[in-house]
Computed example of a mutant assay.
Amino acid sequence: MFGDMMGMMNKLKDAQKKVEETKKRLDTVLIDESSNDGSLKVTLTANRTIKSISIDDTLLEDKEQLEDYLILTLNKAIEKATGINEAELAAVAKEGMPNIPGMDMFK
């Protein structure tokens, strides 16, 4: 029984290491999103860190439109990044979970 417990602990440590590696890798996965007319472009990582924002000069003339475009475009990009992030981390967590009775909700 003690050996099984040590094996499970090692599997959990391995899973934690893989999750951390995946988080680092997700910093290199870039998501690009644009407004419908292409006048605003944003890039962020799958860990939801904004890397760049490109604004067409025409948007600088209308503060309200620029704010609306920023909100809409950033929200779309964040939604995509969150989907990628959650799918990747869930896959790693599922793969690394030891078989603990009653904890099959992760399988």
Rank of each mutant, 00 (worst) to 15 (best):
M1S: 14
F2N: 06
G3E: 15
G3W: 06
D4Q: 12
D4Y: 01
M5Y: 15
M6T: 08
M6D: 06
M6Y: 14
G7I: 05
M8K: 15
M8R: 13
N10M: 11
N10D: 13
N10S: 12
L12W: 02
K13D: 10
A15Q: 09
A15H: 04
Q16F: 12
K17I: 08
V19Y: 02
V19F: 05
V19C: 04
E20H: 10
E21Q: 13
E21L: 05
K24I: 13
R25V: 10
D27H: 09
D27Q: 13
T28K: 13
T28L: 08
L30S: 10
L30W: 02
I31D: 07
D32H: 12
E33R: 12
S34M: 08
S34C: 11
S35T: 04
D37T: 07
S39C: 09
L40P: 12
L40K: 05
L40F: 11
K41P: 06
K41M: 08
V42E: 07
T43A: 05
L44W: 01
T45M: 07
A46L: 09
N47F: 00
T49W: 05
I50C: 11
K51I: 15
K51Q: 15
S52T: 13
S52E: 14
S52N: 11
I53A: 13
I53V: 14
S54I: 12
I55S: 08
D56G: 15
D56L: 14
T58F: 14
L59C: 04
L60D: 13
L60N: 15
L60T: 13
E61R: 07
K63D: 06
K63Q: 05
K63P: 03
E64G: 02
E64K: 15
Q65W: 08
L66K: 13
L66Q: 10
E67P: 03
E67C: 04
D68H: 10
D68T: 08
Y69E: 11
Y69G: 04
L72S: 06
L72I: 09
T73G: 08
T73A: 05
T73H: 07
N75P: 10
N75V: 03
N75I: 03
N75A: 03
K76W: 01
K76F: 01
I78Q: 07
I78H: 02
E79M: 07
E79V: 02
A81V: 06
T82L: 05
G83Q: 12
I84T: 02
I84W: 00
I84M: 00
I84F: 00
N85I: 00
E86R: 00
E86G: 00
E86P: 00
L89G: 11
L89K: 05
L89C: 09
A91H: 04
V92G: 03
K94N: 08
E95N: 04
G96Q: 02
M97G: 02
P98G: 00
P98F: 00
P98D: 01
N99Y: 07
I100S: 07
I100Q: 04
P101D: 04
P101Y: 03
G102M: 14
M103P: 04
D104L: 10
D104V: 03
D104T: 10
F106E: 08
K107I: 12
